[in-house]
Nucleic acid binder design. Structure first.
Length: 334
DNA sequence: AACAAGGAGTTTT
DNA sequence: AAAACTCCTTGTT
């Protein structure tokens, strides 16, 4: 009944959207319904567990981090649970929260709101896991002198990556089976094709390539999406209304969510950021978040949307020219 | 059933 | 007093 994540959208509409490959679409069906094994009491991810390759842990979490399209990972979670894969080998871990993405609404926590707390620690876990993965990839790229995006690899890069991955996870050598393949070729290959070339570890390699692919995808999406020239710091400070004394307004809150697609991309996202058009993907979830923020347990989308409608005549939010369900538009986009 | 648009009274800050 | 909250009616997708 009670699921630890607090939100497992049953919607099947994910995926028929933006840049999904056919492959990832085909995997989509299996993507939902993986349990979330984190214990929410903890604020830190259990790195040891990750390193020992606790089945399913790492990737089902990773899956939640991605906004919508990157469903390759789910497939991966099966593959990787089969053979315990260690993560984070590359360097000692001593960095608790360097990730700017984490969360910024720590100001107005009224005690007694476990749900809120829960939601936040989940975000932190998510952000940290993603941060770790991205960092590991970055490190590997530096060492190997290759780009993070597999699609750009030439045959030499592919061989380097193979060697690296084999070494990292103590796999038998399979480089030969993948000779003369470019990164592009590699990315186009199914898990089955991987297995054909390397029966022993094709699935593992395919799984790891998927991680790289999703990392590259996220990187690209988040960097063009919101970081124009800014690094990433004042992005939050400006957008974060938790530090500005007065009670937060609904439109501000919505903006906050929209600025953190890695945390909330599943329940609210931009359709057109320039025009300020956004879509609420999971109305119940957004309403719950709003209720938590305002300490209104009885909040629902019916009431939330009524408040949004009050913005119509105030000229803060309106319906877009072509009215669509659950789609609104900021009158003054930033 | 879920969303949309508003009216109208109440509550919170 | 402003801004939401709440409840409700009517109409649409």
């Amino acid at each position: 009944m009670s699921n630890p994540v607090g939100r497992v959208p049953e919607t099947t509409s994910y995926g028929s959207r933006i840049g999904m490959t056919e492959d990832s679409l085909s995997i989509l069906e299996q993507s939902r319904g993986c349990e979330d094994p984190w214990e929410m009491g903890e604020t830190k991810p259990n790195v040891e567990a990750l390193e020992r390759g606790m089945p399913g842990v790492y990737l089902s979490c990773f899956d939640m981090l991605l906004t919508e399209d990157a469903t390759w990972l789910v497939k991966v979670s099966e593959a990787s649970s089969a053979l315990a894969l260690p993560m984070n080998r590359v360097e000692p871990r001593e960095e608790p929260e360097q990730c700017p993405v984490i969360d910024s609404q720590e100001q107005g926590i009224s005690p007694g709101l476990e749900g809120q707390e829960e939601e936040r620690s989940l975000e932190q876990v998510q952000s940290m896991v993603v941060g770790e993965v991205l960092k590991d990839i970055e490190t590997a790229c530096k060492l190997l002198n290759i780009t993070p995006d597999p699609i750009e690899w030439n045959t030499g890069n592919v061989q380097k990556w193979l060697l690296w991955t084999e070494h990292l996870y103590r796999l038998p050598h399979a480089g030969k089976a993948f000779q003369e393949l470019t990164g592009k070729d590699l990315c186009a290959m199914s898990e089955e094709e991987f297995r054909q070339r390397s029966p022993q570890c094709g699935d593992t390699l395919h799984a790891h390539l998927d991680i790289w692919k999703s990392a590259a995808w996220m990187k690209e999406r988040f960097s063009i999406g919101e970081t124009k020239t800014t690094g990433s710091e004042e992005l939050w400070s400006e957008a974060d209304s938790s530090c500005s004394g007065q009670p937060i307004h609904l439109w501000q809150f919505l903006r906050e969510l929209l600025l953190k697609p890695h945390n909330y991309g599943r329940c609210i996202r931009w359709l057109n950021k320039e025009k300020g058009i956004f879509k609420i993907e999971d109305s119940a979830h957004v309403a719950r978040l709003w209720g938590q923020r305002k300490n209104r347990p009885a909040m629902n989308y019916d009431k939330l949307s009524r408040s949004i409608r009050q913005y119509y005549k105030k000229g803060i939010i309106r319906k877009p020219d072509v009215s669509q369900r659950l789609v609104y538009q900021f009158v003054h986009p930033v």
